[in-house]
Design a protein around this nucleic acid. Structure first.
Length: 640
DNA sequence: TTAGGGTTAG
């Protein structure tokens, strides 16, 4: 399709006049038919150009069509002009759209509207308001399409003052009864928290439709007035599915899952969004069983349904179910995972160290193309590889990101720090700052962690102080914990205690346990006693603390004190919880406790372990390395 | 002849 086709509309200037006995009449007839012919040809040309503009697929085609428009002198045409502007915005060529607009000497109201709509779609709300001012100063009268879109701009940038001006203007210019305008006004006032003004607009509207009612009800929901929202819902003369969904999600947002469910059950018809709303409602309150029931009951599921279920499992810490659901989703083949699905699943893999599964998710994401476009997926991949110990792959992915965000930097810095690559972490922190990315509290956890690993006491304290002085970040318990650990590991226990006494947050059990641990290493029994005293207040049920101090006494030969603590521990009535390891197998994840007797196949496992141990003794180091390499190169299984 | 309101999902 190209502008060449337009040549068929070329015309020769009209038909020759017919011979007539009445020359005057003949001339008149000729003049009339000529002008109407010209008009109809122009109409045809306009229509053809408009249809080209609306169907054009590439910026190049757009330019070709524009060339035709110029050659026919139609660039200022009332009908073509707005369409050219809209087409420019469709290809998100905002600056170009503006150039085209600026070249139109007297744009009609539709061209202005096309600019407002284009700017709105490109999230350039300030530009809408600036342009509207210019429109008014040019004495162009807005029409019924103008004010709602301008009002939307006020709403988006939360400019209530300009919104009120537009409301006054609408009253003066007679657009008061426009329902689109009314809806936007209700929305604007509700968002600004001025619910009384929203309600005034609503009450004064002569013709209210279901959209207006929804807007008002949503206004009350936004302002947490569910009683008024429900009253209006019950009063509404018409209730469509959007209104029902709005009300149900209103209850969910305010934590009233019971009422949400009751209303959901009363819905005359439900769409997938209604189902997803309740599904997520259950996920958010942690009722995973209800979430599963809703999921199984659904006749139609989309990617948000799957994400809702997966998120429910993730929030509840049921991470192997996250992996199972993902596998099921891929196996069922009805719905494709999206970037959010991958992010959720990769994050679960990271938490349980499921490297093999994570790699397969990565491969799947590559096949779907998400890893190329989406920075969230890339960040999740960095985190997964880093947490699973494959820091080199994590680094490779980080280096491949063109547009890194704060989370990309934070993830890799924290990943490197956790793996003892303190120097690289600090180096990346410097690079991050020089790239103009402002660090946040998470960045500093990584930086302080890096210092802790390297034992850089002075640097760590300097970074800690720079948080508040250079970046206005108030240190949190995590940062304080790092500093306490940093000082403790360096044996500076007195300074650690001083730091705890002056830090901006109250020390928690983790911090006192850190100090208790250090007091064992450095045999500082008085610091250990202080730490235990605080720990008993914070977690009286944790016998591990008693064990630690008891061991310190034991190390120092103070066996009476050690025995006294053992008794105190027994008096708490609680047993120290066993440590547990998770191992990924073909059948899923298997938990192993330190005593190793809970697994039903313990004997078999122990036999294999013995065999492996014997085998290990036989193998020399070189052979071991070779074996590991072979394992890494093993082809990955697909999900399907 | 042009064109515009409401819910929801990281």
């Amino acid at each position: 399709m190209g502008p060449r086709i337009l040549s068929q509309f070329d015309y020769d200037g009209g038909a020759k006049p017919e011979r007539s006995h009445n020359r005057i009449l003949a001339r008149k007839t000729h003049s009339l038919s000529f002008s109407s012919h010209k008009e109809s040809v122009t109409r045809l040309l306009e229509e053809k150009l408009i249809s080209f503009l609306e169907s054009c697929k590439t910026p190049k085609q757009l330019l070709q069509i524009q060339a035709q428009i110029f050659s026919h002198g139609l660039e200022e045409n009332d009908y073509v002009g707005p369409r050219i502007v809209s087409a420019c915005f469709r290809f998100t060529r905002v600056d170009y759209a503006r150039q085209v607009f600026d070249r139109i000497s007297q744009p009609n109201v539709s061209v202005w509207n096309a600019m407002f709509n284009g700017y709105t779609q490109s999230d350039l709300h300030k530009e809408v308001l600036l342009l509207f001012k210019r429109m008014r100063s040019n004495d162009v009268t807005p029409n019924c399409f103008t004010l709602p879109v301008v009002l939307k701009a006020c709403l988006m940038i939360n400019d209530l003052r300009q919104g009120e001006e537009i409301q006054c203007f609408s009253i003066k210019t007679g657009f008061r009864s426009n329902s689109y305008l009314g809806t936007k006004l209700i929305e604007m006032y509700s968002c600004a928290g001025v619910i009384a003004s929203a309600n005034k607009v609503f009450c004064e509207m002569v013709e209210k439709n279901v959209v207006t009612w929804t807007s008002m009800i949503n206004g009350y929901i936004l302002n947490k007035d569910l009683v008024s929202a429900r009253r209006y819902f019950d009063l509404s003369p018409e209730r469509d599915i959007v209104l029902w969904n709005t009300m149900v999600s209103g209850y969910i947002e305010t934590g009233n899952m019971m009422e949400a469910r009751r209303l959901f059950d009363q819905m005359p018809c439900k769409d997938v969004m209604s189902w997803n709303t309740v599904l997520e409602g259950y996920a958010n309150i942690g009722d995973i069983e209800a979430c599963e029931r809703v999921f199984e009951e659904m006749r139609e599921r989309n990617v948000f349904s799957w994400n809702g279920l997966i998120k429910g499992y993730a929030q509840k810490g049921q991470l192997s179910e996250v992996l199972d659901s993902f596998k099921r989703m891929v196996d069922e083949r009805n719905v494709l995972p999206n970037d959010a699905t991958l992010t959720l699943v990769l994050s679960a893999c990271a938490k349980i160290g499921a490297l093999d599964f994570g790699k397969r998710v990565h491969k799947h994401g590559e096949d779907l193309g998400y890893d190329k476009v989406n920075v969230n997926v890339k960040n999740a991949l960095i985190d997964m590889y880093a947490k699973c110990g494959a820091i080199d792959i994590a680094m490779e992915i980080f280096n491949g990101i063109k547009r890194r965000d704060l989370i990309s930097w934070n993830t890799i810095i924290n990943g490197l720090a956790a793996h003892g690559h303190g120097n690289e972490a600090i180096e990346l922190f410097r690079e991050m700052k020089s790239c103009g990315t402002r660090p946040d509290k998470v960045t500093f956890v990584g930086v302080l962690c890096a210092c802790r690993h390297m034992g850089l006491v002075e640097d760590g304290l300097a970074y800690y102080n720079s948080m508040s002085t250079d970046f206005s970040i108030t240190p949190q318990i995590e940062h304080c914990g790092c500093v306490v650990d940093l000082l403790s590991r360096a044996g500076l226990l007195t300074q650690a205690v001083e730091f705890i006494n002056t830090m901006p947050v109250k020390a928690d059990a983790v911090i006192w346990a850190t100090l208790l641990g250090a007091s064992k290493v450095y045999k500082k029994v008085e610091v250990g006693e202080l730490a235990l005293e605080e720990l008993v207040k914070l977690e009286p049920r944790n016998p591990a603390n008693f064990v630690m101090l008891s061991n310190i006494y034991g190390d120092l030969g103070r066996f009476d004190d050690a025995a006294r603590l053992k008794v105190a521990m027994r008096d708490t009535g609680f047993k120290k919880e066993a440590g547990v390891s998770w191992i990924e197998t073909d059948d899923g994840l298997v938990k192993f406790y330190s005593s190793g007797e809970k697994h039903p196949r313990t004997e078999e496992l122990q036999r294999i372990l013995r065999e492996l141990t014997n085998l290990n003794i036989l193998l020399d180091e070189e052979e071991e390395e070779e074996e590991e390499e072979e394992e890494e190169e093993e082809p990955q299984k697909d999900f399907v």
